[in-house]
């Protein structure tokens, strides 16, 4: 299959093959003319106003305050140039938090996609039972992240329900502090984060499976491919756009994680789960507003810098389509 390249950017166009074979350019033009007629551009204004006030403006201020000495200790805000950046660069705490943040994001991306993919495969057939189970797995996505965090925190306490259950099964007293290990707690918290969001990944993988034409799989079967081989060689590669979306959102979304970590460990034990947003929260709470702003600007730039290569790499994977 050929790849359609976008001439302006040189990046492969996002249009998957099934669309490009159906829509002719003329028809596409006509349909866009109709949509412009029924959906005039000014319909965007209310949404854009909200976006502007709550997202663009704070982001701009984020850039401004990072270069000031804004704090809770005094009333004036003076520009200080790159001071905040040089101070932070000299501090080990920032890099430690950055390392933890990236490790956390990678773990979440891996877990969330493994869980979501497994669920999508298990629940792919449109039976009534599967419909019900899909909804059940989607419920955590709609739940408050803090509530999820507090529930897991209670379940995983040394005297919590999980240890109670394990004690009852094994017949011995289990007192594991699931959130108390300086090496493994980050994995546990990432798994909780992934558990909360796996329903969304499942939904997107399910949608991805639905877009794969049945005749392709049938053709493979007629050619003598085993179901295993047909799955991994035909259907899985065709799922590439869903993988792109899921991996990128899980990875970049969890870089901005805060709620679940705050509710389960608040950065502990011994700050081994102190992701950058928790560090920022702590710094802000001390009244060091400019430093906290600088850190969030660094996080912003880091996510932006990471987003391009990750999305580019995942898009490249789609070129085989």
């Amino acid at each position: 299959m050929s790849t359609v390249l976008d001439h302006t950017t040189g990046v492969p166009a996002a249009t998957p093959p099934q669309d490009s074979t159906r829509a002719t350019p003329a028809r596409a033009r006509r349909s866009s003319a109709i949509s412009r007629h029924t959906h005039p551009m000014w319909f965007l204004v209310p949404a854009f106003a909200i976006l502007f006030v709550f997202f663009f403006l704070p982001t701009v201020f984020n850039f401004v305050y990072a270069f000031t000495d804004w704090s809770g200790f005094k009333s004036q805000i003076n520009p200080v140039g790159w001071d905040n950046f040089t101070d932070l660069a000299g501090s080990g705490t920032l890099f430690r938090s950055l390392r933890i943040t990236i490790a956390y994001a990678v773990l979440v991306a891996v877990f969330q996609n493994l869980f979501g993919f497994a669920l999508a495969v298990l629940l792919e057939r449109d039976t009534r039972l599967n419909h019900v189970v899909r909804v059940l797995f989607l419920i955590p996505v709609l739940m408050s992240a803090l509530a999820v965090g507090y529930i897991f925190q209670a379940l995983l306490k040394p005297e919590g329900a999980l240890n109670g259950l394990l004690s009852a099964i094994t017949g011995t007293d289990v007192h594991t502090a699931w959130l108390g290990n300086t090496n493994w707690t980050i994995v546990v918290v990432a798994a909780i984060h992934a558990w909360k969001w796996m329903g969304l990944s499942m939904l997107i993988y399910l949608a991805g499976f639905k877009t794969i034409p049945v005749d392709l799989v049938e053709a493979a079967q007629i050619d003598g491919a085993s179901p295993w081989r047909a799955f991994w060689r035909i259907r899985f590669p065709l799922l590439a756009p869903a993988v792109t979306f899921n991996v990128a959102t899980a990875l970049l979304g969890s870089m901005n994680g805060f709620d679940i970590v705050q509710a389960t460990t608040a950065g502990g034990p011994a700050r081994t789960t102190e992701i950058l947003n928790i560090f920022i929260y702590r710094t802000f709470g001390q009244g060091l507003f400019a430093q906290a702003t600088t850190m969030s600007l660094i996080l912003f730039l880091l996510v932006a810098l990471l987003a391009f290569p990750v999305i580019r790499f995942l898009r490249k994977r789609e070129e085989i389509l």
């Binding site: 709550f54 997202f55 990128a248 906290a292 969030s296 996080l299 999305i311």
Partner: peptide, 23 residues
């Protein structure tokens, strides 16, 4: 499948902007 790309961009933007600060 143009949606995911745009949604992705929007989502990334939302995620990024969430680090902003108030007056």
């Amino acid at each position: 499948m143009r949606m995911p790309r745009r949604a992705l961009a929007a989502l990334a933007l939302v995620a990024l902007a969430a680090t902003g600060c108030s007056d």
